[in-house]
């Protein structure tokens, strides 16, 4: 039996909003450690990895590891039926072919129950080494979202370059060009507004903005986003997931293969 209860059901709604347009079908791997998912988009250019730790749930029971393959747009449609303040409980019997979602409104007697069909998916998992990166940037997630959205007006790709204590996002296209330069901020008055840059070596890499704009759909999950870059390897864009108390619940990480000048 698998059962996971989340008082702040809105977190699960936000996670689905952040992945459903990138991957259509994926499997949740549920173990005593928590729930995780890894899936590539159909073109194999990007990958999303989600982790929700067992102790972040308000109740978590997983007698034996289960893989819950599902259509994410179906799950997302069902989650739209849950209110933002609802408690969400996921339940799956060990050998069932569906998952049950129970939504409970706060301070009300209303409970709704939905079922989503499970699928057997041939998931391909990639082993991603945990290596240090040349550049790590932490910045406000809304700023990253804005930059990606603005630069997609100009061109299809963004060139990210980092030198000393600044990071530069540049795009060019038929209408002209645009650049956004961000410098490291000194003050830590409002940590969520800060830009911090840690650089081992200067870097310049290009990435498709279409995917970065998909990744930015995770913005409501976290006030800060972390970008990790090294020469000629995929970019990592990470949003940490915290609950209302600020406790670490897990993360959503996106990997994006670079565009390389041949």
């Amino acid at each position: 039996m698998f059962e996971a209860k989340l008082i702040q059901g809105a977190i699960l709604k936000k996670i689905l909003d952040a992945i459903k347009d990138l991957v259509n079908e994926a499997s949740w791997d549920c173990s005593s450690q928590g729930m995780s998912l890894q899936a590539m988009d159909t073109s194999h250019v990007s990958l999303v990895a989600v982790q929700m730790k067992a102790d972040g749930f308000d109740k978590y029971r997983c007698d034996r590891s289960v893989t819950l393959g599902m259509n994410l747009s179906s799950l997302s449609k069902i989650l739209k039926c849950a209110g933002n303040d609802d408690t969400i409980t996921l339940k799956a019997p060990d050998d069932g072919d569906k998952i049950t979602l129970v939504f409970e409104a706060k301070n009300e007697s209303e409970t709704s129950e939905y079922e989503v069909k499970l699928m057997n998916l041939d998931s391909e998992y990639l082993g991603i080494p945990d290596t240090p990166y040349s550049v790590n940037v932490k910045m406000p997630s809304h700023k990253f979202q804005r930059i990606c959205r603005d630069l997609q007006q100009i061109g299809d790709a963004v060139t990210i370059s980092c030198a000393k204590d600044s990071i530069r996002f540049a795009a060019k296209g038929d209408l002209g060009s645009g650049t956004v330069n961000l410098c490291q901020t000194a003050s830590a008055d409002k940590p969520e507004d800060s830009v911090s840059i840690s650089m081992q070596e200067p870097i310049i890499q290009s990435f498709a903005l279409k995917y970065l704009n998909h990744f930015a759909k995770a913005t409501p999950l976290s006030p800060q986003v972390s970008l990790s870059l090294s020469p000629d390897v995929p970019l990592v864009v990470e949003y940490s997931i915290t609950d209302d108390d600020g406790s670490d619940f897990g993360y959503i990480r996106y990997y994006l293969a670079p565009k390389i000048d041949e």
């Binding site: 590539m40 073109s43 194999h44 250019v45 990007s46 990958l47 391909e124 998992y125 990639l126 082993g127 991603i128 080494p129 790709a157 290009s206 498709a208 390897v233 995929p234 990997y255 293969a257 670079p258 565009k259 390389i260 000048d261 041949e262």
Partner: peptide, 14 residues
């Protein structure tokens, strides 16, 4: 020419 790479050329399957 600028070429879009794919992830399996960087990471192996597990």
């Amino acid at each position: 020419d600028i070429e879009q790479r794919i992830l399996p050329s960087f990471y192996s399957s597990k």
